[in-house]
């Protein structure tokens, strides 16, 4: 009973918040983020808030979620935004299939929906009769940039391993595929490929063990920089400075490692601007611009010492 009351209180509180937001004539954008425990999304959120302050011609309602797999709360957020009657929903889906149905409902309610960061599943979109553009980086292409940098250095037959992200996560899959594209193009020898769940300590242990099993490894492709840091530390304690490491994300902590050569390269997908750019695109449509189509690719860049 008590719980119910608290829930009711929370809901009416939300409604009031929405009420004040609606009172203004400015369009309202609902931003749905992934886990704010991830510094990549945390920075993106900060970027979006700064953007809102700078533009000042729209209201921003932003929600995050507890962890990478908590897509239930994203679905709830979409439904809350529909109830509040926002003008646009800008969403980084936690699950590329589960999010299609609620987003369809939002589009039917006349809300402009922009899908960024991770693309919704093509099949699931077709099944629901949804046509929706995707604004985001090419994770697979980005991983291939890093993989190619490694391939160029090692040349044909270079022995490499991949440290993967969470099994089943879309960006983890795309990055693995990108690395595998490089392996195929440069005819590298892929010795092993394992997950370290995006995490430094696990990558450190898993990679140490891979290095024991394959002492002849020449290059490592890590699907994010947190794991690349774990790999670099493992190489330091093994006393190996002959193995090249590439990562992904360009988090501040890898800056010094790239400068002094402990890492060969990482990939920047300008996460801080990503949500802000998607909001710009959504507002153009809200203000009567043409609908977005296909894949609006956002910039990615290889980061090396030079």
């Amino acid at each position: 009973m008590k719980l119910l009351k608290i829930a009711a209180g929370a809901v009416s509180g939300l409604a009031m918040l929405a009420g004040t937001a609606m009172a203004d004539d400015k369009p309202v954008v609902g931003l749905i983020m992934k886990s704010l425990a991830n510094e990549f999304f945390q920075n993106m959120m900060v970027g979006a808030e700064a953007h809102q302050e700078k533009r000042g011609d729209y209201e921003l309602l932003a929600v995050g979620m507890q962890n990478e797999t908590d897509f239930e709360s994203q679905i709830n957020a979409v439904e809350n935004f529909i109830t509040q009657g926002v003008d646009a929903i800008v969403v980084a889906p936690a699950d590329s299939r589960a999010m299609v149905r609620p987003l369809k409902k939002a589009m039917d309610a006349g809300i402009v929906v922009v899908n960024f960061d991770v693309a919704l599943d093509e099949e699931a979109k077709k099944q629901r009769g949804v046509e929706l553009a995707f604004v985001g980086p090419d994770n697979r292409g980005g991983a291939k940039l890093a993989g190619d940098a490694l391939g160029k250095k090692l040349g044909e037959g270079g022995k490499v391993v991949i440290i993967e992200g969470n099994p089943g996560a879309d960006n983890a899959t795309q990055r693995r595929l990108g690395f595998e594209d490089s392996v195929a193009e440069y005819k590298l020898d892929l010795l092993d490929s394992r997950t370290a769940h995006w995490e430094t300590e696990e990558a450190n242990s898993v990679f140490s063990n891979m290095l024991t099993a394959h002492p002849d490894i020449q290059g490592v492709m890590a699907a994010n920089d947190s794991m690349a840091i774990g790999v670099v530390k493992a190489l330091e304690s093994a006393g190996r400075d002959d193995i090249l490491v590439v990562g992904f994300d360009n988090i501040p902590a890898v800056g010094p490692m790239i400068e002094d050569g402990r890492m060969l390269a990482t990939v920047d997908q300008f996460g801080t601007d990503m949500a802000a750019n998607a909001i710009d695109l959504a507002l153009e449509v809200v203000n009567g611009g043409p609908e977005l189509e296909g894949w609006v690719k956002t910039p990615i860049e290889l980061v090396t010492a030079d």
Partner: peptide
């Protein structure tokens, strides 16, 4: 000391 970083998502 081992990893030379502090990560708030460590230890899950």
């Amino acid at each position: 000391a081992r990893l030379n970083i502090s990560s708030p998502i460590a230890g899950i």
